[in-house]
Design a protein around this nucleic acid. Structure first.
Lengths: 335, 335
DNA sequence: CCTCGATGTTGAAACGTTTTAAAGACTGAG
DNA sequence: CTCAGTCTTTAAAACGTTTCAACATCGAGG
């Protein structure tokens, strides 16, 4: 249990110096085949496991990058993470996933730890608005699905304002004039942007600002969507919105669930549009209209920006993708 | 960018020795308030970030545990991970998530890396059958959602055989006598166990073994479920099963999707039972009957077993939970 | 036979912390 | 004024690697 066999034990057992063992580990080609075999045998026999702390301390570099995700239970982020991991692997890095669970404290703790670990780079979808609190601390940081407020980091984002606009324009075109926006908290940049886009759609269509009611939620999970559904039901049907734009698909699915449960029909009684187009959106009780983001590309791009940070004269870049509306049954035209 | 300010820079800047700085970091109470302030100021001013590699190398302990998950995109595992993280946090540990994506190679790489990192403990839901290849290497390992084959590790599992039995018994009671089991690859222990349970249900009911057809898939994702659906459609309706038991909910959702798409009705043309009871199961096009596992408890228990590994005279424990059938619309009684 | 380059191997110095034993600085009692 | 304690602070020794300059050895070319 506490054998703690080190490189010197291996060296001794194989009758060579530590330097040679280290060479076998890091530059196998430089050591004579016979010696290499002997060393490998010794490693095997003693059950030697290289101590990465020591290695990293001396060598100064790490072989991992990390992604601090806003909500590991949200398929959108795991899809992005998949893209990140694929790109990282190709470059020879491992990916550690950390879940801030939308909690600024956790996020802070993880970032602190990762900086201390001297990982090769950090990707983060920050809890707070512009990730302003994410200072420069020596380890490259790239913002994912957020635009860097002050340009101190690279960032990869999707145009959330446009996304909100697409969604609500679609609803307006389908004849809706009393629309609810479900999402929150507003401290989350994405939610703010999508809300702004929604408002812009109203303006474009010449509708009054109060055509859109904000139903703020405490989070972006399914349960919050169900809660919002119940709040909607509480309204007298004359004032109740005929359509809802949800800040993400989890909310939309929750909303959908609570509608069905209370005997209301989607889209007849309430049209619903989600955001992210996660895989489950299409499989929902009523297939969900949603705003699709290029998740995989988002992840891959983020990873490559991160890995480019160490290049000689690096300039921070800000990549922005376009979202796309995917229309399904949940928002069929109003009768 | 490359300031690399160390503890000795801080010490010098504050006019104390490195030992004092270290004390401020690790035992703040032992150093005089005035000195402490001075040191903290210096840390702040120089932007010092403690080097965790060096710390860990010297101190011998880490503040991290890791969970190597079979599929980060499967909500079942993120729910388990949530339980793990909660328990870990309470004990003062951070959790790193690694995604093996059902790939034995990735799993191996991650385990290797984590051992080298000397994390405080590793949780893993192994790709292969009994996690036999996961040797004892000095770092405590606990198997999650798998029973340790040879008892060399602690494990937390759910009775998958019973789960399969519950599911298929339910289908039989609803009058089905031609049942498909969808899942794979069979190298995954869970799939094998659930299949075994399904067979047992047949035996219990006095049905012939060929009442159950195995439709083996290459993985446990939604897309594989869709593929299985198409294969089912290919069968002449006289020989086509009237019910399907899927090895997990992702498969079931995929199957459901492909049924609907091809104009078949669930449960009338095909009854479907899933496994895991993920949050999206209840929100599906046809709410999914599923076998529920105590995900959160699974995670919490796994974490506490792991953290108990370092106790003086530790004996490996094997905890097994019972699954529970949740009946919904997708498996309504046969007409 | 000598020299040279190539090829393998090695001793020892880092890397940035934590930790231990002990030195220093005070305090209050005698 | 001294001495035993009590608090603070410190010098120096780890921790387990990687790396670098230097050292052997060997065969070939002159």
């Amino acid at each position: 249990m506490k054998p703690s066999v080190g490189i010197r034990d291996v060296a001794q057992h194989a009758g060579v110096s530590n330097a040679t063992v280290s060479n076998v580990l890091n530059r196998p080609d430089v050591v004579a085949p016979a010696t290499r075999q002997r060393v490998l045998a010794a490693i095997e026999e003693l059950g030697f496991v290289r101590n990465e702390s020591a290695r990293q301390l001396r060598a100064g570099r790490s072989r991992v990058i990390a992604y601090v995700v806003l909500d590991a239970a949200n398929p959108f982020f795991t899809d992005v993470a998949r893209g990140v991991e694929d790109a990282a692997r190709e470059a020879g890095f491992a990916l550690f996933l950390c879940n801030s669970a939308s909690d600024a404290g956790r996020e802070h703790d993880y970032l602190e730890l990762l900086h201390e670990q001297r990982v090769e780079g950090i990707l983060v979808t920050p809890v707070d608005g512009e990730g302003a609190q994410i200072a420069e601390r020596g380890t490259p940081v790239v913002l994912v699905d957020r635009e860097s407020a002050d340009g101190t980091h690279c960032s990869v984002a999707v145009d959330d304002v446009l996304g909100g606009e697409l969604a609500v324009t679609h609803l307006i075109e389908n004849g809706h004039t009393r629309i609810a926006m479900v999402g929150g908290p507003l401290s989350i940049q994405q939610v703010r942007d999508r809300y702004e886009g929604a408002m812009r759609a109203l303006t474009n269509a010449g509708l009054p600002q109060d055509a859109l009611t904000l139903l703020e939620t405490k989070g972006l999970q399914v349960a919050e969507g169900r809660g919002a559904g119940e709040r909607l039901m509480g309204l007298p049907s004359s004032r109740r919105p005929t359509a809802a734009f949800c800040a993400n698909d989890l909310l939309a699915l929750g909303l959908l669930q609570s509608m069905t449960q209370q005997g209301l029909k989607v889209p007849d009684d309430l049209a619903v549009v989600g955001y992210d187009d996660i895989e489950f959106a299409a499989a929902a009780a009523v297939p969900l209209t949603s705003v699709r983001q290029p998740r995989d590309q988002l992840g891959r791009t983020a990873a490559s920006l991160l890995l480019a940070e160490n290049e000689p004269d690096h300039e921070h870049r800000h990549v922005k993708f376009q979202p796309e509306l995917v229309v399904r049954a949940s928002s069929a035209a109003k009768r």
